[in-house]
Nucleic acid binder design. Structure first.
Lengths: 214, 214
DNA sequence: TAGATTGTTAATCGATTAACAATC
DNA sequence: TAGATTGTTAATCGATTAACAATC
């Protein structure tokens, strides 16, 4: 529905706006200024982001919470159910399985995989751990379109290849490595080492031992 | 040391370059082109990122792996040890405590906190869980400058305030909420819901039920 | 109507890319 | 020297911000 190409950062902010909106009653009307303050951006940014998709506001008034929530929910395709596969049932994978976000209806983990024979067959959060060998056939069978990688770095590329063969269209990668996927597949990386190292840089800035300003 | 203001995205890419470099022998020389391919960017980008900080390459040859690794390590301040505090010893917090990145010397979790009386006092990965009440005094005492928030959304702002009072200069926030910190404190968000919702958007693009292209 | 705030265009800002002289 | 690739400047691209007519 957008009139033009939408920047990814705009889509990310829509998700943030939606979360903020959920704290208000449906009937409330919020101005772009108020919404901006809630999420730490500017009123112009809010209006620009929203108008990529349509005219959902009331001039002179603002945005009706219920209406805007509904529109963003539809834009982000959260008015449907997505089934997910998770590969790598280590500490992080298990933690994500219990994540409240996966108890909601929009996203539901449907299949889980590991390459450790000791784990295959056991049940976690109601799901049986399958062998990574079964990834593509299982995903094809279930029509799963989103995969989450929580394996060690070494296994991530092979797992990604299997997910792609199984027909996924999106991958959320937590392994600390840059994986390569076909252009058609949307890849998002969550890179803890990178985040920490970036913090390290900014913290060392402006200290006597490593100023980074001129 | 940089001559000009450095974009955050450049710092993030330096972290990625560094990880790629670690797979090569010290004596090897890589061109910006080769390095770019390894991490999925362009040769011009690699050179631009690096030259914010100095001239580390050899015209006609490329970049000496050992030398470049050393320089980036120094730029990112990874040639020192950072002590961290982690707040919220639930599934995700516990998973992060076991994360291999925290077994290395650059980042070490030194103190952990929770608000659940049943958890306070127990030992996890060699650390005793303290009460969130003790955050600021403990951080001041130890001189901890980085905090990780793995609490539920409701607790995150209070925890952030305590971390700031304790003197942290950087926060890595995993709670699904936008927290507010003083300008001097560097905040990085890892937002799983947002990542999934962005994937949802891109996957619904170009499908019959919700095309987002014109 | 007067006041407020949207939607949108134009101006600005900042990051990426292209191109090439310098140099190993 | 000839070939290759850096470091850097200028051109391009894209996102943010400012400003204001339209409109509730």
């Amino acid at each position: 529905m957008p009139r033009f190409r939408v920047p990814e950062i705009t889509v990310e902010r829509l998700s943030i706006y939606l979360r903020a909106l959920k704290k208000f009653p449906e009937e409330k009307v919020l101005s772009s200024q108020e919404l901006a303050e809630l999420v730490g951006t500017t009123d112009a940014q809010v209006r620009k982001d929203i108008t990529y998709f349509g005219e959902f506001g009331i001039p002179g008034q603002g945005y009706h919470v219920g209406k805007l929530k509904e529109e963003i929910t539809h834009i982000l395709a959260l008015d449907r159910e997505w089934e997910l596969a998770l590969v790598g049932v280590g500490k992080l994978g298990t933690a994500l399985l219990a994540y409240p976000g996966f108890k909601k209806k929009e996203f539901r983990i449907r299949a889980i995989f590991d390459n450790d024979p000791k784990k295959i067959g056991i049940r976690i959060e109601g799901l049986i751990v399958r062998s990574v060998e079964k990834i593509s056939e299982t995903l094809s069978r279930y029509g799963i379109k989103i995969g989450i990688i929580t394996t060690p770095a070494e296994a991530a590329q092979d797992v990604a290849d299997r997910l792609v063969r199984g027909g996924v269209k999106g991958i959320l990668n937590f392994a600390p490595v840059r994986i390569i996927v076909p252009e058609k597949v949307k890849l998002k990386n969550v890179d803890l080492s990178m985040e920490l190292e970036t913090l390290s840089y900014f913290l060392s800035e402006g200290t006597s031992t490593g100023s980074h300003n001129f």
